[in-house]
């Protein structure tokens, strides 16, 4: 592959990364922030070209970046819906009915975990404790928390997404 066709980060992300450089004594420490930015740019997931671009920017090997991506639950290696739903099913949420909420969501969306609905709107996963057990059962829709779900309300919330 020629130099020119190799994947690169868009200019605004490179600038944002440069702005963070003085914060850390090593370039490697910029990897998690860079991956967060790249994932936002690549529609919520990290295709191979995103991984290659981040690796190039930080002078790391793609294998090293790939290893980090696979370790963390918030980085995705497959396409996701326009909206990502994370339903907490850990014990405190389960005690208040999280499994029933998840069942309701699954049958409403007609897809399984990690699959994208036909219209590209949603994908969902069950998730570990999100640190909001007083709101149980709860879920995260993109960056926002939704509290005190019921099997009905979870469907309503999905319907109201654009």
């Amino acid at each position: 592959m020629s130099e020119a066709s190799e994947p690169r980060l868009p200019e605004e992300i490179r600038e944002a990364i440069d702005a963070l450089r003085p914060r850390y004594p090593t370039e490697e420490a910029l990897l998690l922030p860079a991956l967060h930015m790249a994932q936002r740019h690549w529609d919520g997931w990290l295709p191979d070209e995103a991984i290659a671009a981040v690796a190039h920017e930080l002078n790391l090997t793609p294998a090293k970046v790939y290893g980090v991506v696979t370790f963390y639950d918030l980085y995705h290696q497959n396409p996701v819906g326009r909206h990502r739903l994370r339903v907490c099913t850990n014990l405190p949420c389960a005690l208040r009915g999280a499994e029933e909420v998840l069942d309701s969501l699954r049958s409403h969306l007609q897809v399984d975990e990690d699959e994208v609905t036909a219209d590209g709107k949603c994908s969902f996963v069950h998730f570990e404790c999100l640190g909001a057990c007083e709101q149980a059962p709860m879920m995260m829709v993109d960056d926002d928390y939704h509290a005190h779900l019921t099997p009905e309300s979870v469907r309503r919330i999905v319907e109201e997404l654009d």
């Binding site: 490697e28 420490a29 990897l31 980090v68 370790f71 963390y72 639950d73």
Partner: peptide
């Protein structure tokens, strides 16, 4: 004194203090 917020990426083990340091330095936790 400088103070910075560093965001994790979803892994319980990064709450363990040395897992957290690895993660802060840009590695698997």
């Amino acid at each position: 004194l400088d103070m910075y917020v560093h965001r994790g990426a979803g892994a319980y083990i990064c709450g363990e203090e040395t897992g957290m340091l690895e993660s802060l330095e840009g590695r698997r936790g």
